[in-house]
């Protein structure tokens, strides 16, 4: 599956636009990490636990979007956007969406990855 946030593929034709595909994931961190981050918070700096948490969350959302794209028979997702919103204290939603398309698989170039 090819994922890109450009609107087209360079050097490839889009055969068919299928439509919007999306994925989302809501995650909360456990209390222990929360407290540790709270302490770290006073001195400033990066909160690695949260960075990792959001990274994982984003990967999961992307994974779900890819599953959806595969289900509708697409081989690429273009114009991908992310959005984040904090719902309550300690939980954040990651939402990712894009356009599922079928692009030509040209044999002369090997750009189309699995």
């Amino acid at each position: 599956m090819l994922i890109s946030n450009l609107e087209f593929m360079t050097g490839k034709k889009i055969i068919k636009h299928i439509g919007l595909v999306q994925g989302s994931s809501v995650r909360a961190k456990h209390a222990g990490r929360d407290i540790m981050s709270g302490i770290k918070n006073m001195f400033g700096g990066e909160l690695t636990a949260y960075t990792e948490l959001l990274q994982e969350s984003r990967e999961e959302a992307t994974e779900r979007m890819i599953q959806q794209a595969e289900a509708v028979g697409a081989n690429a997702v273009l114009n991908v956007r992310f959005s984040t919103s904090s719902i309550t204290a300690g939980a954040a939603e990651i939402y990712v969406y894009g356009t599922a398309v079928i692009i030509e698989s040209d044999t002369s170039t090997s750009a189309v990855a699995s």
Binding site: I3, M42, F43, G44, G45, L47, T48, L54, Q55, R58
Partner: peptide, 20 residues
Amino acid sequence: YDAPYEQSLVSGSVVIANDY
């Protein structure tokens, strides 16, 4: 447009806090 390119999504993120 000068050549065919391979495309892929890359990202980076950071969570940062202000001190007291």
